[in-house]
Design a protein around this nucleic acid. Structure first.
Length: 801
DNA sequence: CAGTGAGCGAGCTTCCGCTTGACTT
């Protein structure tokens, strides 16, 4: 048995290190944090100096048991968790849980998994840094206080089950405010004038008028003033320029590039990277460091020289610019830079693609600058002395561009495309082929994608590499935000063309407002955000995290007592909580849209129990009418007219078989209804205009499908049915999918009982966590369903008050 | 599946940050 037991965080890391250290060392993994605050209120004794109560995390009991089991077989324990605040805390918790000597246990750190780095670390052990641990405790406790005191306020004032926190609430705020910017944006337009000239040898060059023209009239006038003009090159300037490669990947930039180049979601990127990491192909993927180990730098040099020659190599070491970076790990890079592709058959296509991206980016970061020559040409019109500019770019040396070019986000697209210009001289006279003035509308800032949100959060110092993806999942799960696409609308652009000495007018169409996989705030997200910003402006402030991070740094330096820091924070926070709990009204995003022209009642939009809705009549009115907003409508923007339209449903179309036929829009789209039968409308049907005849047609069709649905019927509520996903058993309201190997026709009543019993104990499908949430939601639904049934009539029952 | 837009009433929800696993569709 080995003499030394070394504990790291990641099992994959443990495997690698064990190889480097040889048989004197056993290496095990803690798999992240092992102790944390328990869920309940007793976790922190605020009055008693914020004294925390820690518990072994249930999932980690097994890990602890395993380590305890072998600890006595070793003479020495080494704590080698990550070199950052959280890592230091993990070591400290491990020391407590394992009963190690807090003051004397050996603590070592390294930020790259290479043999020299680890050997050096072993030679220089230190002890646990209590200041750093205290900074982590302050961070942890502050987050718990903020999250667990804000959330219950939301349950009481808006809706049960909601959440708020230092990170997620600011992420939602960014998305809400961006949406409002877009809603309120008023596009202005200008006219861009471009001209195309023909040279003697037949080649063409494009030039653009230096200034944009403000109006349609001015654009037309300008083109007219060019009729009959001559054009001469009056200036020609050539300047060298260069482009440098981007640093190697860290978590946030990997997520951004994988989103732009491979259309991965941030979660997908992390999942694929994890696979590559566990297979040993790349270094650790949750990092804010951009430095490369000496070993990687040396190998990159060799690979580049071999592939492209000495001229292409330039060794560079990058430094992180992000404010709260902890740099516990090096950049994300291939573990072996000579491997340009994966030969592993077990790796999927996405792993291949992501690996290649990482390989190229890493290598490119060690390559020479690209050298360019930029040319600007002034072309002057003789008729009005207007100056057109043509720009050209010649790549003199490609350098790193041979391998990799970073993609750009929508908001930083470079609009003028520059090509190569033919040889030109000052004084040269050019012949105009045509000139055009095309209207261009200004555009609002783009909506966030997952990856651009991560970029923004990182700039603000909010969140960590390990939390970017989970944070996005959280705000989507809470339905504060939805990720979706949207179709654009056509828009006409003014266009004038000068050709063959005459100006003509035309129109061009562009599609505007189309979106793909963007983050949109929901009505709920907006209401929650407005509430938090109003009552907790200091917490929702974009600078809040940066401010507390400064304090954590002071604690880590030993210049600040962690309890004092928390006390000071709490002194400001606690009154906000108390005051909001007492004074704040319930928030529903209520907005008055106007007056119903016929009844004179007020029309308003607000968040209801089942989502956004419009209401006809105020709370005091006896008779009220309600209608849910359609999926494409928002509380913030719905108009009175649109609301009045919503009240037109349900429509009674007439009678069929002595029952009324109704048309309406439900959770699953528009439908017509006869008694208990619901039939969805088809493509081309419209609930506002559908007529009785067509509705009956749909109802008959649905009946036929229903009739065919029954394969076998034992009793009213025990039946074998044909469904969308194949045959199933309906047993007193619960549905059981039939096993593949049984013939639905041959099922007996006994089989049905048995299938039901067997299924009862099976967990519902879906992930563990989801199952509980889902079945709970189902329970809720049943309950709320029963109640209204019991008191069906009383629209006016609203007793007193 | 689809209706509703309340509330004498049981107990629950929630944070951020560090890690990976294993129910089946």
């Amino acid at each position: 048995m080995a003499k030394n037991l070394l504990i790291v965080e990641s099992p994959a890391k443990a495997k690698t290190i064990e190889k480097y250290l040889g048989k004197d060392f056993t290496v095990v993994a803690s798999r992240g944090h092992v102790r944390d605050l328990p869920k309940g209120d007793k976790a922190i004794d605020i009055k008693n100096g914020f004294k925390p109560q820690y518990e072994v995390i249930p999932d980690k009991k097994e890990v602890i048991k395993q380590i305890k089991g072998i600890i006595n077989e070793h003479e020495e324990v080494w704590l080698a968790t990550d070199e950052d605040r959280e890592g230091e805390a993990i070591s400290w918790h491990l020391a407590h849980v394992l009963g190690l000597d807090i003051l004397n246990t050996r603590r070592i750190v390294f930020n790259e998994i290479t043999k020299p780095a680890i050997t050096k670390a072993i030679e220089n052990p230190r002890t646990i840094d209590q200041n750093l641990v205290n900074a982590q405790q302050a961070r942890r406790i502050l987050d718990r206080i903020v999250g667990f005191q804000l959330s219950p306020i939301l349950w009481r004032k808006i809706k049960t089950g909601l959440s708020a926190g230092r990170v997620q609430s600011v992420a939602v705020r960014l998305i809400v405010e961006r949406e409002r910017e877009i809603i309120n944006f008023e596009p202005s337009s200008t006219f861009k004038v471009t001209a195309e000239f023909i040279l003697d040898n037949g080649s063409k060059i494009q030039a653009e008028l230096a200034k944009k023209l403000p109006t349609k009239e001015s654009a037309k006038e300008f083109l007219e003033s060019c009729v009959g003009s001559a054009y001469e090159i009056t200036k020609l300037e050539t300047k060298p320029s260069k482009k440098s490669p981007s640093p190697p990947f860290r978590t946030s930039t990997l997520q951004q590039e994988a989103s732009r180049k491979l259309s991965f979601s941030v979660q997908q990127t992390m999942r694929v990277a994890q696979t590559l990491y566990e297979a040993g192909y790349i270094t650790y993927m949750r990092t804010d460091g951009v430095d490369l180990s000496q070993q990687a730098l040396d190998q990159a040099g060799n690979v580049i020289r071999n592939l492209y020659g000495e001229d292409y190599h330039k060794s560079r070491q990058y430094k992180t610019k992000t404010s709260n970076a902890q740099e516990a790990h090096e950049a994300i890079r291939p573990t072996d830079l000579s491997r340009s592709q994966l030969e592993d058959k077990d790796m999927g296509r996405n792993e291949q693609r992501l690996y290649e991206l990482i390989w190229k980016r890493t290598l490119a970061s060690q390559m020479s600058d690209a050298r360019l020559e930029k040319t600007t040409v002034d072309i002057t019109a003789s008729s009005n002395q207007a100056i057109f500019k043509a720009r050209g770019e010649v790549l003199k040396f490609d350098g790193f561009l041979k391998l990799y070019l970073e993609s750009k986000d929508e908001d930083e697209e470079d609009e003028d495309t520059k090509g190569v210009l033919p040889p030109l001289n000052v004084g040269q006279v050019l012949e105009l082929d045509y000139m055009q003035a095309l209207e261009r509308f200004s555009r609002p800032a783009p909506r966030y994608t997952e990856a651009s949100l991560v970029k923004k959060l990182e700039e603000l110092g909010i969140g960590r590499p390990s939390t970017y993806a989970p944070t996005i999942s959280t705000i989507i799960k809470r339905t504060y935000v939805v990720k979706e696409g949207r179709e654009g609308n056509p828009r006409n652009l003014g266009l004038f063309t000068l050709r063959d000495g005459a100006v003509s007018e035309g129109i061009k169409t562009e599609i505007t407002g189309a979106e793909k996989a963007k983050l949109f705030p929901s009505d709920l997200g907006m209401v929650v955000n407005d509430f938090l910003v109003k009552f907790f402006p200091s917490i929702l402030d974009y600078g809040f995290t940066a401010k507390v991070e400064d304090e954590f740094d002071k604690i880590a330096e030993g210049d600040q007592i962690w309890q004092d820091m928390l006390a000071e924070f709490y002194e400001g926070f606690d009154p906000l909580i108390k005051e909001t709990a007492e004074t704040a009204e319930r928030a529903s995003g209520e907005r008055e849209l106007g007056i119903h022209p016929k009844s004179g009642k007020v029309v308003m939009a607000r968040l209801g129990r089942y989502g956004p809705m419009v209401q006809l009549g105020s709370q005091e009115d006896e008779e009220k009418k309600f209608a849910s907003l359609r999926k494409d409508q928002r509380l913030e923007t719905i108009t009175l007219e649109e609301a009045l339209d919503l009240f037109k449903l349900p429509r009674v179309l007439g009678e069929f078989e002595e029952q009324p036929v109704k048309a309406n829009i439900g959770r699953f789209g528009p439908y017509v209804q006869l008694g208990k039968l619901f039939a969805s409308l088809e493509e081309g049907d419209d609930p506002y205009s559908i007529e009785l005849e067509r509705a009956i047609e749909l109802i008959k069709k649905k009946r036929e499908i229903e009739a065919n649905k029954i394969i076998k019927s034992f009793t009213e509520d025990i039946q074998i049915l044909r469904g969308r996903w194949g045959p199933y058993l309906k047993y007193q309201g619960t549905n059981v999918k039939l096993p593949k190997d049984v013939e639905p026709e041959n099922i007996t009543l006994e089989d049905a009982h048995r299938l039901f019993e067997e299924n009862k104990n099976k967990p519902k499908r879906g992930a563990k966590k989801k199952t509980t949430a889902k079945s709970k939601a189902a329970d809720d639904k049943k309950e709320t369903k029963k109640k209204p049934a019991a008191k069906k009539k009383p629209t006016t029952k609203k007793k007193k008050s």
